[in-house]
């Protein structure tokens, strides 16, 4: 059990896919209302970690406590508990392309909370304005939006039900630097407004520095370093240094093929 202030407490989390051991004992604690950014190279299991906590992937071993409740076994009620209090912005936004934007944002309200369509639509317009989009955008379909707008709509969808815990999977990947900064600002603003706990996954260091209260680096299935953003320049950790400065040479050897 973490102390009362801890929202998320992960202990010794393991997950393998076939012979590929992705997570090899992750320990992670996160206080309520804090924003943690997990950095690490591609394929180091950042997304898997988030999906385990979120209940989309079942861990092989270890515990995941959310507000003191262990959800690692992922029973039906565990999953309902977790999805009930969290929201996620997916890497590719993952908007439902068969539904207009407003119905994407209001999806949970309509189909899970069974709100009326008109009330849900009002809430969707409100969420759109919170991410800086005009209400008319609601009538468009996701395929008609630019990448940056899709990310914003994805964010609006994630916050529509006022979640306590927010996950951001590569929120700025594929965006130009200016749009990336817009998204970073929105994330900061919305997380603060909700008072939510946030876990972000990124390999964009500018984004990590901006939105993190703390940064943790995942390497070979474990958290190898954790500290505040301003400490990362002087981490005294050769692997963190290599990653932060983006050097091909160093202790981290990039596998050229997938194992």
């Amino acid at each position: 059990m973490g102390d009362a202030n801890t929202t998320i407490s992960v202990r010794d989390l393991h997950k393998s896919f076939g012979t590929n051991d992705v997570l090899r004992g992750v320990d992670l604690d996160l206080d309520r209302g804090k924003s943690l950014v997990v950095i690490g190279g591609s394929g180091t299991g950042k997304s898997v970690l988030a999906k385990c906590i979120l209940g989309l992937v079942r861990a092989d071993q270890g515990s995941i406590e959310i507000n003191g409740r262990d959800i690692a076994r992922q029973t039906e009620s565990d999953r309902r508990y977790m999805t009930g209090l969290s929201g996620m912005l997916f890497q590719g936004a993952a908007l439902f392309d068969s539904l207009p934007v407003w119905e994407n944002i209001a999806f949970r309200l309509i189909y899970s909370q069974r709100k009326s369509r008109s009330a849900a639509r009002e809430k969707a317009a409100d969420c759109l304005s919170q991410v800086g989009l005009a209400p008319e955008i609601g009538d468009l379909f996701p395929s008609e939006l630019s990448g940056g707008m899709q990310k914003r709509v994805g964010l609006a969808r994630a916050i529509a039900a006022d979640p306590q815990i927010l996950f951001f999977d590569e929120p700025t990947t594929g965006l130009d630097p200016i749009m990336a900064d817009v998204i970073n600002n929105l994330i900061l603003e919305r997380v603060k407004a909700l008072g939510a706990t946030a876990i972000s996954i990124t390999h964009d260091m500018a984004s990590a520095r901006k939105i993190a209260d703390e940064i943790a680096m995942l390497y070979q299935g474990r958290i190898i370093w954790r500290g505040r953003p301003e400490e990362i320049e002087n981490s005294n950790n050769p692997m963190v240094e290599q990653f932060v400065h983006g050097r091909a040479e160093g202790p981290i050897k990039m596998a050229l093929r997938r194992r």
């Binding site: 999805t83 890497q91 908007l95 999806f107 949970r108 899970s112 969808r157």
Partner: peptide, 13 residues
């Protein structure tokens, strides 16, 4: 493959 099914799960549907 575009994670829309995962997204649906996270939206409690």
């Amino acid at each position: 493959v575009t994670e829309q099914i995962d997204a649906m799960s996270t939206l409690a549907v």
